[in-house]
């Protein structure tokens, strides 16, 4: 075997081994959905982001925080400055101390972080039967499968098999590791009515919330791919030129 061939097979082997790194420890393998943000130039579907935000604030936000996001970040979803101000002002946040040393409540501003449903982790656990509803800011990156996993959890509820007994406050879910989840089925058909007239099905809600949470975890994905494309085109052209330069320099060396 020539060293060149060997190097190539080494590379191929490594490439084959990589996906295995990602598979370990997951649930039961969620079916891959079709996402707008996949692919070399994929972008977030703005309408899906806005619908997903609607699902988040009407349903998820009653238990799950989104601590790493500010209201101003909603500009990415296509909301105008006034719309963001209006959305923020629906929430009351604690500020202070004022000149008299008192803490006070005021309507949230675009620069404020998303208001969390509970004051702290203990309060969240106390209100949820001892289970902690995780912060959702990075959820799409913090679980194997990402958006497909979130979609899988949303749509994975079913009756437990007969040989499995669930305790009070436990539910069976196909996508969950070990199939036991402490969250009651959060979404069902018709639960949230969409302003844009999209039909409110469980499938639609699950797709939209997964898109929204993928954006929340990776808000600069579009800029990343755009920048990457520029760098890639530059390097391809540069490599091509340098190949010519190298050939030219070496032509009379031997």
């Amino acid at each position: 075997m020539s060293i060149r061939k060997f190097a190539f097979s080494l590379f191929a082997l490594t490439a084959l081994a990589l996906p295995a790194h990602a598979k370990e420890g997951g649930g039961h393998g969620e079916a891959a959905q079709h996402w707008s943000f996949k692919g070399m130039t994929g972008t977030y579907d703005r309408a899906a982001l806005q619908r997903g935000f609607e699902v988040y604030r009407q349903v998820c936000a009653s238990c799950h925080s989104l601590n790493l996001l500010s209201y101003r970040n909603l500009a990415d979803l296509g909301y105008s400055e006034d719309q963001i101000k209006a959305i923020a002002s629906e929430y009351a946040v604690m500020d202070g101390p004022n000149d008299e040393g008192e803490m006070f409540e005021r309507p949230a501003r675009p620069s404020d972080r998303f208001k969390a449903p509970f004051a702290n982790k203990k309060a969240a656990m106390y209100a949820n039967n001892g289970a902690y509803p995780p912060d959702m800011s990075l959820l799409a990156k913090a679980r194997h499968g990402g958006a497909d996993y979130i979609y899988g959890i949303m749509t994975g509820y079913a009756d437990a098999p007969e040989n499995m007994t669930l305790m009070q406050g436990q539910y069976w879910n196909a996508a969950m590791h070990g199939n036991i989840i402490a969250m009651s089925p959060p979404l069902s058909d018709g639960m949230v009515s969409y302003e844009d007239g999209t039909e409110g099905t469980l499938h639609q809600y699950a797709m939209d919330i997964a898109t929204f949470l993928t954006w929340a975890a990776e808000p600069h994905m579009e800029a990343r791919k755009r920048t990457g494309l520029k760098a890639l085109i530059f390097l391809l052209v540069f490599s091509f030129i340098m190949y010519g330069v190298k050939k030219r320099v070496w032509q009379d060396a031997h």
């Binding site: 990156k141 913090a142 920048t227 990457g228 890639l232 340098m242 190949y243 330069v245 190298k246 320099v249």
Partner: peptide, 29 residues
């Protein structure tokens, strides 16, 4: 000349991973 050419090809792979699969080496935890 030869090193610059080789470097440029290497950086193509680096750019593809960095900008399209930035978390391929990172575990969800």
């Amino acid at each position: 000349a030869k090193d610059t050419f080789g470097l440029s090809v290497f950086l193509i792979l680096y750019v593809v991973v960095t900008f399209w699969f930035p978390n391929v080496f990172a575990h969800p935890d």
